[in-house]
Design a protein around this nucleic acid. Structure first.
Lengths: 360, 360
DNA sequence: TTGTAGGCGTTATCAT
DNA sequence: ATGATAACGCCTACAA
């Protein structure tokens, strides 16, 4: 029986908490059982060719029988890398983030890396704290998704001396490594789709916390307008916070305009959800009276009524790309600094030709 | 400058990968700088009263200046606990799971614990592997959410000697610690709401992978029927996989029945999403022709058209409760074995009185 | 109040 | 092919 050494001689009563008094077998235990030295056990378990096949087999058998698992923490101490990455996210409880997280976790896992999940709640202070915590845990690399504070703790990240990859960060980055979505092209495609449908009064419903991505999408929207010969109207640009609730308010404002828009380009699908609800609440119909387009193509986009026309972001793949980039960096290789991934316009039924009598 | 010792004498060129050749400062570095011994540094940084206030201040200043952060891996080796918990989830890319994960992460973080996120993809083999990986990393405890294979690797978990808490596991558990939702009462309330509205032909759209929870919800549905004096009709029970797509198919089947239901109780909101779409596609309206009720109250429930009547699960709180339970267990305290959390019926607009001419 | 010595469970470097 | 021995960075006695 394996007991903590410090308990020796004290007849340790197993009181309700077995896991605190018992110890997992160590490499030395296995060595003793196999009548070899610990290094030999270590070698055998790593399938080193240097060890006799029979001894190796015996050692492995014993290891399996005892349920021995080498301690990654002890190994990490000596090898100086933990095969662990830190993943900082504003919140997992967001369908966009959770898809990215999923892609990251999968890829990391496939390469033998474990991931520490850290939620920042979009709170800069908390974000700094969690990064500190990751540093203490000696992660080999860090991925930060949709950080709203990128630049804020940039020096902090620098000091950690581990590679970092950003996914869709919201700040104009002097950061070396990141994977970003084609915000400009994506939104331009959505807006162009709308102008192609004959819409002339098209609104943009942005995200005031989106910074970089919001600016790029707005620019894409303006570019599409320009191409269609439609002059930009600042009054048709409103901002929510990327969530349905605020998007409803912003949409109500739009609908109350003397000359309301016949179409709305939303920063993301969450906003589109709110926009559609607001249009209905106003007694109008989507897309009969106003067309609505989203951005992201979250799972629910195909199930709204009407199904949402939106710009697809390959979220899982973005997570995968970020992880692969980080993996390279951690291996000491070079990696593309700015990975840009393309979007795809998914036309569903929330957008329709503008009604001619409404056109300006 | 701190360099890896092994590089000494070799004039190490800093080639593109600073983090592999540099080393983070260790406690000894700080000790040298502060002209004290390492234990003193250790004590100072832990705010031990045993160390002179001025020396402590000086040490802390130096530590801060150098960006020193004690290595959690070294500490873990000696203290024999890592302040780390493992979180196994079938997939994070699921709005239900991600809410629970969020609650867990928050609570763990507040208590100084880091969480390893492990995705099992509902694959038993993969689930076993990730648990092994967690064992190697010497997590202090494990939370498994919505496991479909609970019993399968139960012995494995036993061997790890760390406490485990399950959240909504899908297998009748002989597991000691878990937090579960009141499936029976929740679904009974939803179905009772429907019978109260005058519905007599009410269908149940379940989840064939839900096992335990599906069985309980089905039982709740049957209980409500019984209370209303409605005899159970097996033909009105269909099963999807908890996702919209399959729910659509199941709903189409229901709608094609000679005597189709006027209301559908769905296993979860995702299924309800599909059910509503199928009803519309069939040329019928929700709730005009058929009422639809969900379960979970995911964020989109308030934004569907019509807004979804559903049974709320306090997902974040469930995560919090699970974590608190695990925290107690890890501290060697007792904890309630089976925590049951209540639901709340949220009546929105996807349910309405049955049309009298349709009643049987 | 501080320093010295040992050990946590591995891997790495030498011998043999 | 195997075994001593020494790190890794920290904490915890115990000694001074």
């Amino acid at each position: 029986m394996l007991k903590k050494k410090r308990d020796k001689g004290t007849a340790p009563v197993n009181r309700a908490v077995p896991h605190r008094v018992l110890r997992q077998p160590s490499i030395k235990d296995i060595a003793r059982l196999a009548k070899v030295s610990h290094p030999t056990v270590s070698r055998a378990l790593q399938n080193s060719p240097l060890v006799n096949a029979q001894t190796a087999a015996r050692i492995r058998r014993i290891a399996r029988a005892t349920g021995y698992r080498a301690s990654a923490v002890a190994r990490g101490l000596v090898t100086r890398h933990t095969r662990t990455i830190g993943l900082v996210v504003t919140t997992v409880a967001d369908p966009f983030a959770s898809e990215v997280v999923c892609g990251i976790e999968q890829t990391a896992n496939e390469h033998g890396y474990a991931v520490f999940l850290a939620d920042s709640n979009a709170d800069p202070e908390r974000e700094k704290r969690v990064v500190q915590a990751l540093a203490e845990r000696r992660v080999d690399g860090i991925i930060v998704t949709s950080s709203r504070v990128g630049t804020l703790y940039l020096p902090l990240l620098r000091k950690m001396m581990v590679p970092i990859v950003l996914v869709n960060d919201q700040h104009p980055g002097d950061f070396v490594h990141s994977v970003m979505i084609s915000n400009f092209e994506g939104m331009r495609a959505a807006a162009a789709h709308l102008t192609g449908l004959g819409h002339r009064r098209i609104a943009y419903l942005g995200d005031r916390f989106g910074y970089q991505s919001d600016a790029e999408r707005l620019a894409g929207y303006r570019a599409a307008l320009k191409s269609a010969g439609i002059s930009f109207c600042a009054g048709l640009v409103v901002h929510g916070d990327g969530l349905p609730e605020e998007a409803m308010r912003a949409t109500e404002h739009l609908l109350g305009l003397r000359k309301p828009p016949t179409a709305i380009c939303c920063y993301n699908d969450m906003s589109a959800l709110g926009a559609m609800k607001a249009v209905r609440a106003y007694g109008l119909s989507v897309p009969g009276d106003v067309s609505v387009a989203g951005f992201d193509d979250l799972f629910f986009a195909a199930y709204t009524d009407p199904p949402l026309t939106t710009v697809r972001q390959p979220m899982r793949r973005m997570g995968k790309l970020a992880t692969e980039s980080l993996l390279k960096l951690m291996a000491g290789e070079q990696s593309v600094a700015q990975i840009k991934v393309g979007t795809e316009l998914v036309v569903r039924e929330s957008t329709a030709p503008a009604r001619t009598n409404v056109c300006s």
